[in-house]
Simulated scan of single mutants.
Amino acid sequence: MPSAPRPTLRDVARAAGVSHITVSRVVRGSPQVAEATAARVRRVIRRMGYRPDPVLSALAAYRMARGEGDSANTTASPAATAGDAEAKPARRRSAQTRSRGSVLAFLDCDLHRNSRQFNRDTLQGIRREAALLGYGVESFRMEPDEAIQKRLGRMLFHRGVRGLLFSPTDVLWTFTGWDWAEFAPVSLGALDHEPAMHSVAMDYFQGAAQGFDKLARMGCRRIGLVVDSRLEARTGHRWLGGFLAQGGARSRYYGEGGLHAPALFLAWAAREKLDGVLTIDPVMAKLLPGMPLVYLNNLGAPEGFLRPVLNPETVGAEGVRLLHNMLLRHELGIPAERRRIELQGRWTTAERIVAAR
């Protein structure tokens, strides 16, 4: 027996008594539709089991990027006029915003500017994935001050921005002053900020555990973890956790890195009788010539050494996909049950891969 045909956007529009343009705006989370109309359309979407066609979404994004989106002159069907009469007047927005449909906010939380290149690459991935889904992206600098955060939240709300992407950072944040019921937030990075939200990050724990195992397979028995403590903390101590879980000794964790005081580091390495090292420090190859080394990330790892490769753009793109699904389902607010997506890199000794520009 043939299955029932998949409901289309126009099917939803007929059932809800609005135009297909209105349904498209509701699906994208556009602020141009009155909340009562949007709620009615979402009820019909849930009842009919409608899901956007990814191919059509990509085509719509392409047309919007060329200035052919729903802000262009379009004639709605007479049957939908009553429903469309409830639409709010369009807010004044930039040409980019009008051509893209909805806008996502990238909130740069890198207070100490320690993650500039990583965040630039992450933002690049966000912009590319967002364009495929029909979103524009605007970047804003975050500040710890509650009053400043509150003003930013109000400004984003009144501009119709509902999707928030908080950047990777090595600082734990407490986000205050936000009316969370109006936003869908996603954190990019391993740190557990307050309030806890859905997040996307590299799987640092498994990376350290797998790196330890690779050194053990090389015959190493006294393996050290040499990572600057500030950068290790950025993983939510998952590098240290993966190292210890595989049998590493707490005394064989060196948190100063090799660059700060090489003589002190070498004296420590001799005392611990290391025969293998997990690290992210490119100087290790010079300080410990001939010793087996495994790098925990791709940034600065010398050619010829094992490392897991995960382009930061991948983290940004995955964050957009997660946020897009939340907006489609109108999942606003802080989740009762938090989801974390952890991405594993591909182990390689090949030449360092640089994020595409």
Score class of each variant (00 low, 15 high):
Gly304Ser: 09
Arg250Gly: 01
Gly300Trp: 02
Leu266Asp: 00
Ser71Ile: 09
Gly189Cys: 02
Ala317Phe: 01
Gln124His: 15
Ala38Tyr: 07
Ser167Val: 07
Asn311Met: 10
Ala209Phe: 14
Arg321His: 08
Ala181Met: 04
Leu288His: 05
Tyr253Thr: 09
Arg141Ile: 11
Asp145Arg: 13
Arg357Tyr: 05
Asn114Pro: 00
Ala261Tyr: 03
Arg113Ser: 03
Ala267Tyr: 04
Glu146Asn: 04
Trp178Pro: 00
Ala82Phe: 04
Pro308Gly: 11
Asn297Trp: 04
Gly163Glu: 06
Leu274Val: 15
Phe175Met: 13
Ala355Gln: 12
Glu337Thr: 13
Arg357Gly: 03
Gly163Trp: 02
Leu288Asp: 02
Ala263Trp: 00
Glu182His: 14
Gly316Asn: 08
Gly319His: 02
Phe305Arg: 09
Met326Cys: 10
Val294Tyr: 01
Phe243Asn: 03
Val227Glu: 01
Ala34Val: 06
Ser99His: 13
Ala350Thr: 11
Pro292Met: 07
Leu231Arg: 14
Glu342Arg: 15
Leu293Pro: 11
Ala245Gln: 12
Ala249Lys: 12
Asp145Met: 06
Asp275Arg: 10
Ala36Lys: 13
Thr81Gly: 00
Ala85Gln: 13
Ser199His: 04
Ala72Val: 10
Gly134Asp: 10
Ala208Tyr: 08
Gly257Pro: 12
His112Leu: 13
Gln149Ala: 07
Glu351Trp: 05
Gly49Trp: 09
Arg66Val: 02
Val277Asp: 01
Phe212Asn: 00
Thr176Phe: 00
Leu59Thr: 12
Ser102Val: 05
Ile45Val: 15
